[in-house]
Simulated assay, not measured.
Amino acid sequence: MTRILILSGTGWLGSRVAQRWIDRGAEVTSVARGRRAAPDGVELVVADRAAPDAYRDVAGRDWDEVVDVSSNPFHVRDAADALAGRAAHATYVSSVSVYADADEEDADETAEVVPAWNEGDEDDYARAKVAAEQAAVGLAARVAVVRPGLIVGPGDPTDRFGYWAARFAAAGEGTVLVPETRGRVQVIDVDDLADFVVSAGARAFDGVVNAVGEPHPFDEFVALARRLAGHTGQVHTVPAEWLERHGVGYWMGPRSLPLWLPDDMPGFATRSNAAYLAAGGRVRPIEDTTARVLDDERRRGVSRARGSGLERSEELDLLRVWEGETATGV
Results as ranks from 00 to 15, higher is better:
residue 211 A to I: 02
residue 168 F to L: 12
residue 211 A to F: 06
residue 207 G to C: 14
residue 210 N to T: 02
residue 190 V to N: 07
residue 148 P to T: 06
residue 173 E to D: 15
residue 210 N to E: 04
residue 188 I to H: 03
residue 177 L to F: 07
residue 149 G to C: 06
residue 174 G to S: 15
residue 205 F to M: 15
residue 216 H to E: 11
residue 189 D to P: 01
residue 152 V to N: 00
residue 193 L to H: 08
residue 175 T to Y: 09
residue 205 F to V: 09
residue 210 N to P: 00
residue 147 R to I: 08
residue 177 L to H: 08
residue 170 A to R: 08
residue 185 V to T: 14
residue 169 A to R: 14
residue 162 G to M: 14
residue 169 A to G: 10
residue 170 A to G: 13
residue 195 D to F: 11
residue 183 G to H: 05
residue 154 P to R: 13
residue 171 A to M: 06
residue 210 N to C: 03
residue 195 D to C: 03
residue 148 P to N: 10
residue 169 A to F: 04
residue 206 D to S: 13
residue 213 G to M: 02
residue 197 V to P: 01
residue 160 R to G: 02
residue 159 D to S: 13
residue 186 Q to C: 00
residue 216 H to I: 13
residue 197 V to Y: 00
residue 192 D to Q: 05
residue 212 V to C: 05
residue 158 T to F: 11
residue 209 V to T: 00
residue 178 V to A: 03
residue 184 R to I: 02
residue 157 P to R: 05
residue 176 V to Q: 00
residue 212 V to S: 01
residue 157 P to L: 11
residue 156 D to L: 13
residue 203 R to C: 14
residue 164 W to S: 07
residue 173 E to R: 15
residue 184 R to D: 14
residue 174 G to P: 10
residue 157 P to S: 06
residue 148 P to M: 10
residue 203 R to A: 06
residue 189 D to V: 00
residue 160 R to K: 15
residue 201 G to F: 08
residue 173 E to M: 02
residue 187 V to H: 02
residue 163 Y to C: 12
residue 215 P to Q: 09
residue 162 G to F: 05
residue 174 G to V: 08
residue 182 R to Q: 15
residue 146 V to D: 00
residue 179 P to S: 13
residue 208 V to H: 07
residue 149 G to D: 04
residue 170 A to F: 09
residue 205 F to C: 06
residue 203 R to S: 11
residue 200 A to S: 14
residue 185 V to N: 04
residue 172 G to N: 11
residue 191 D to L: 01
